[in-house]
Amino acid sequence: MPDRIPAVLILGTRGIPAAHGGFETFAERFARYLAVRGWCVGVYCQREVKRVGTRISSRVWNGIELITVEVGLKGPAATLAFDAFCAWDAARRGGVCLVLGYNGAAFLPYLRASGGRILTNMDGIEWRRPKWSRPIRAYFYVSEWIAAWSSHRLVADHPAIADHLATRRPRRAITTIPYGGDPPSDEIAPPPLGLEAGRYLVSIARIEPDNNILTIVEAFSRRPRGVRLVVLGTMCVHNRYHRAVEEAASPEVLFPGPIYEPDQVQALRIHALAYLHGHSVGGTNPSLVEALWAGNAVIAHANPFNRGTAGDAQFYFKDVDSCAVAIEQVLDEAEAVAHARAAARRRAEDFRWGDVLAAYEDEVRRVGGYPPAERVKVPFAEPIGATAGASG
């Protein structure tokens, strides 16, 4: 094979610098990692405008081409239009297309037919989320199949996701690479919001039924606890589920809304007595990985995704009763909490960004037909502050 500069295009996020969540954080980290290693890297970025001026433009940022697509729409229609123009533009550029999620899977057959080499991170099992209406769930179900068969290879971020994808494609087409995390910085700020270290529990998640926020709040609020429960995430008075969560809360529950300052989110984790994680659908959740790196004792919904990520040393629940029991264990059993904290730190070693990014580079090289990479430690940006106070 003649020598050529390896090239990758990253599709499926709203863009970088990261400001929205897990996929954007990964896209920024991976793009910067590859740029340092001599790759030609492009990342598609969505810009919603009242009137489209220049449909597609680009600029260079930290050695990465930011390909901005202007969309004169709002909401889901804007996302679909963005995905369509990204696929159209990527088909003309060449290189490997790393697609994050399958929301825009309808355009992948065109991309592949145009010669695109496609590696898709299939994310969670979106069509199982109860928050979606039946038509939307049907759309995601079909999109999952389209993405599975339009992509040259699939990435699962959790063994349970890989098992699910194996019902769509042969296992030889699937690789498992988890989400990454970082050790906490040496300088930790005091707890925000006037909280006292070790005197509160924290939940960081979107306030949605499949994240079991109502279950957590009801379990905590059954009786006075002598500590606070901090529930980060956007609350909307017009949302029926949000109202139910708020009505179920005791005076010891605090709803500060989302927090976007990384140092405050890190301090909130580090100083918490335990982290509550109610996610029931998905793979390796970024917020749970960050809790492990923070050395949190974890109270998590009992499902294969969470158990496979956090391990057996943590506390698990299935309903309000078992969640209340887990909370009482954390409040009453200091030795069990210390054991869970130590186990979390050990478990976090399985989710180092360096290993995750190197594994992704190997897969992109495989899909693109590039020669294997030399494994070296590459200096790149310090932890990126993109995780908002509500994740997954």
Rank of each mutant, 00 (worst) to 15 (best):
F30P: 01
F30S: 00
G38Y: 02
G15M: 14
R14H: 10
V8A: 14
Y33R: 05
A35W: 05
A35T: 07
F30R: 00
L9H: 15
F23R: 02
L9S: 15
I10E: 14
G42D: 06
E28H: 07
E24N: 05
A27N: 03
G12D: 11
W39E: 06
F26V: 03
V8R: 11
T25H: 04
A18F: 08
R37W: 01
E24H: 06
A31I: 01
R29I: 03
W39I: 02
C40Y: 04
R32L: 08
G12Y: 10
A35V: 05
A31N: 01
G38R: 03
L34V: 03
V36G: 01
E28S: 08
F26R: 06
A35Q: 07
A35L: 05
H20N: 09
A7N: 10
R14M: 10
L11A: 14
L9F: 11
A27E: 04
Y33T: 01
R29P: 00
R14I: 10
R32T: 07
V8P: 11
G12Q: 11
T13M: 11
A27L: 02
L11N: 12
G22L: 06
F26L: 12
A7E: 15
A18M: 08
G21P: 07
E28T: 06
G42N: 07
A19K: 14
A27V: 00
R29Y: 02
R32E: 06
F26I: 02
V8S: 10
G12V: 12
C40L: 07
W39A: 08
G38L: 01
C40K: 09
G38I: 00
F23V: 04
T13D: 11
L11H: 11
A19R: 15
G12A: 12
A7L: 07
L9I: 09
C40V: 00
P17F: 13
L34P: 05
F23G: 03
R37G: 05
G42A: 10
A19N: 12
